[in-house]
Computed example of a mutant assay.
Amino acid sequence: MRSDVRRGGAGRREASTLSAVIRVLLVDDQELMRMGFRMVLDAQEDVEVVGEAGDGQAAVELADRLRPDIVLMDVRMPVLDGVAATQRITEAGTAKVLVMTTFDLDEYALAALRNGASGFLLKDTPPADLVSAIRAVASGDAVVSPSVTRRLLDRFLGAGGGELRDAAVLDVLTDREREVLTLVAKGLSNTEIAEKLFLSEATVKTHVGRILSKLDLRDRVQAVVLAYETGLVRPGDGG
C-alpha cells in the first residue's frame, strides 16, 4: 500500500514558532478518506499532517521514522490491521493512537483500546469534534467519546467478550484513589468528580496522575478499560 510523507508550508512552520504544533500521521486504506481528514486538519494552525499510510505495516514504519504526536488509525486494513499496528506503535512509545472506526460498537476498536489506543471516534464524527479529539489526546487530558467507549465496554465485557484481570492489581491504590478511578471509569470529568467527592479539581488531577503512575497506564482511556476488566466497574453501572 502507498505511503506518503508530506510537509507543511512556510505558514505552518511560522505557526510552530508561536505554539506547539500537533504532528499527525493519517492511516487508512481508503485514499479518499485520508484526503477528507487532511482537508480538515490542514485548515488548523496548530495541526500538521506529516504523512499518510494505507496499511498498518506502513503506519508502523512511518511512525517510527516521523515520530508524530498522534496517529489517526483505521482499524480494518490489509497487510497489518490497525489493532496490531496500534500495539506496535504504543509499545514502542512512538506516538499516541486515536482509532477511527465506521461502527460505534466495533470489537476491533475495543481490541485497539486494550492494545494502547488513547481513544476512538467514528469516521463520521463532525470535523470540529475530530480536531478537538486530536487536541485532547495530544494533551493527555480526556477520554475521547466517553459515552461510546462505555457502550463498547458494556456490550463486549457484559456479554463475556472480555478477558477479566485479577483485581489484585488495584491493591496499590488507596481507598480514595479507587473511588476516583471508579468515577473516571463511569465517564465523569475531573470537575464532576471534584463536585461529587467535595474535593478541589487540582486534588482530583493529582489523584488521577497517581492512579496512572501506580498502575503504569498511559491515559484515562486505559484506566477505564482496566476498571472494567478488573470488575471495579461493571457493565451497566451508572454515573
Rank of each mutant, 00 (worst) to 15 (best):
V24C: 10
K123P: 08
A133N: 02
V60G: 08
D81W: 03
G116H: 06
V49Q: 02
M33C: 11
G93M: 01
G140H: 08
A59F: 14
A95S: 11
A138L: 03
A85R: 00
I89T: 08
V21M: 06
L41Y: 14
Q57S: 13
E45I: 06
D29M: 00
R38I: 12
P68F: 14
L105A: 06
L110I: 11
V83L: 01
L98F: 09
Q87P: 04
V143K: 07
G82K: 00
V71K: 00
L80R: 01
A84N: 03
A84C: 03
V97P: 05
V50N: 08
V71T: 05
A63C: 10
Q87R: 07
L72Y: 14
D141C: 08
D55R: 00
M35V: 10
P126Y: 14
V24D: 11
L105M: 04
G116V: 08
A112Y: 13
T86E: 09
E107T: 07
S132V: 03
A84Q: 08
V27W: 10
I22G: 09
R38V: 13
L26D: 06
M77H: 03
G116R: 00
D28M: 01
G36E: 05
D28S: 04
S132D: 15
L66W: 12
A142I: 07
S139I: 04
T94F: 11
D141V: 05
D29V: 01
V49F: 13
Y108L: 03
F103A: 03
P126T: 09
L72Q: 07
T90D: 07
M33N: 09
D124W: 12
